[in-house]
Simulated scan of single mutants.
Amino acid sequence: MPFIDQFTDLTPVNVVVNILDVLLVWFVIYKIITLIKGTKAVQLLKGIFVIIIARILTVFFGLNTLSWMMDEVLTWGFIGIIIIFQPEIRRALEQLGRGKLFARTNLQEAEEQNRLIEAMTKSVSYMAKRRIGALISIERETGLNDYIETGIPLNSVVTSELLINIFIPNTPLHDGAVIMHKNLIAAAACYLPLSESPFISKELGTRHRAAIGISEVTDAITIIVSEETGAVSLTSNGDLHRNLSMEEFETRLRKVWFGPEPEVENSSKWPWRGKKNG
């Protein structure tokens, strides 16, 4: 049989090349899925799968008119996708050009991660005790440049003192969100998109609605400190985690931001740890 002959005629070199070819294809698919995970592109991908399944069903049941409509959607839909998602495609290509897809964590990065977690937890603990309202969004894979441009640029090193100072009431930068890019505070007083979900509790205010909104369209992590109650909440991938203790907040923040906590730190190094949230 011709199909069987295609495999029996392969040389060892061809076998290795074909295996590498398949592995590279799967690697590219994996990286694409990693890039769009937690973004609005995931919903788009689900919609494409629905259209493809509908197209197959129209052929199976002989629905010619509907089949023609599906063909038109698939033909012109990809052009529409490129136009609508041009910013996301551009940012993905920029990340690829910077070699970010192949970056590896080393000891220096782990130390920087611990420093960032310490600064975030210390500042949030301080503001929660004093009921200072705060909204902090942390950029991950999906770029937040569109939202950074709505605020006041800072490009400052992340410290707990600076974060606290920004959100002190009646100061020029306290109204709006702080957006972090890598290990820097990119901008303050930024505007985030408000969620339009009808399922959000009516008791949640603008900060929580903005935090949910940005998590629905990007993979950003957003931290909220309630001005009314001092409660600490966190959003990620469209999920809202409310009324977190400081231990829960630190654990969850580290997990969604960097992954499991490395066993290299002693809690005595951070004396502010373990204090109850007032």
Score class of each variant (00 low, 15 high):
P2M: 00
I4A: 10
D5W: 02
Q6L: 13
F7K: 02
D9V: 01
L10N: 00
P12G: 03
P12D: 05
V13F: 06
N14D: 15
V17L: 13
V17Q: 14
V17P: 00
V17D: 11
L20F: 10
D21C: 14
V25K: 15
V28C: 12
K31G: 05
K31A: 02
I32K: 03
L35W: 10
I36V: 15
K37I: 01
K40A: 10
V42Y: 07
K46S: 09
I48D: 08
F49S: 13
F49I: 13
I51W: 11
I51C: 03
I51T: 11
L57P: 01
L57I: 14
T58D: 04
F60S: 12
F60A: 12
F60Q: 10
L63N: 12
L66C: 04
D71R: 10
E72V: 12
V73N: 04
G80A: 15
I81F: 15
I81H: 03
F85G: 01
F85T: 07
Q86P: 01
R91N: 14
L93P: 02
Q95R: 15
G99D: 06
K100S: 13
L101W: 14
L101V: 04
A103V: 14
A103P: 04
A103L: 11
R104Y: 08
L107S: 13
A110N: 04
E111A: 09
E112N: 13
R115I: 03
A119W: 01
S123G: 07
V124R: 06
A128Y: 03
K129L: 06
R131Q: 12
G133I: 04
G133A: 15
S137E: 03
I138G: 00
R140I: 02
D146P: 00
Y147I: 01
I148W: 06
T150K: 06
G151Y: 09
L154A: 07
N155V: 15
S156E: 15
V158K: 02
E161G: 12
I164S: 06
I164G: 00
I164K: 10
I164E: 14
N165I: 00
P172S: 08
L173C: 06
G176I: 02
A177I: 07
K182L: 05
I185F: 02
A187G: 06
A188L: 05
C190V: 09
P193W: 01
P193G: 04
S195L: 05
G205D: 07
H208A: 15
G213C: 03
T218E: 02
D219P: 03
V225L: 08
V225P: 05
V225D: 07
S226R: 09
L234R: 05
S236G: 02
R242M: 13
R242E: 15
L244G: 01
E247M: 11
E248H: 04
K255W: 10
V264H: 08
N266Y: 04
N266M: 09
N266Q: 09
S267R: 12
W270G: 01
R273W: 02
G274C: 09
K275P: 00
G278Q: 14
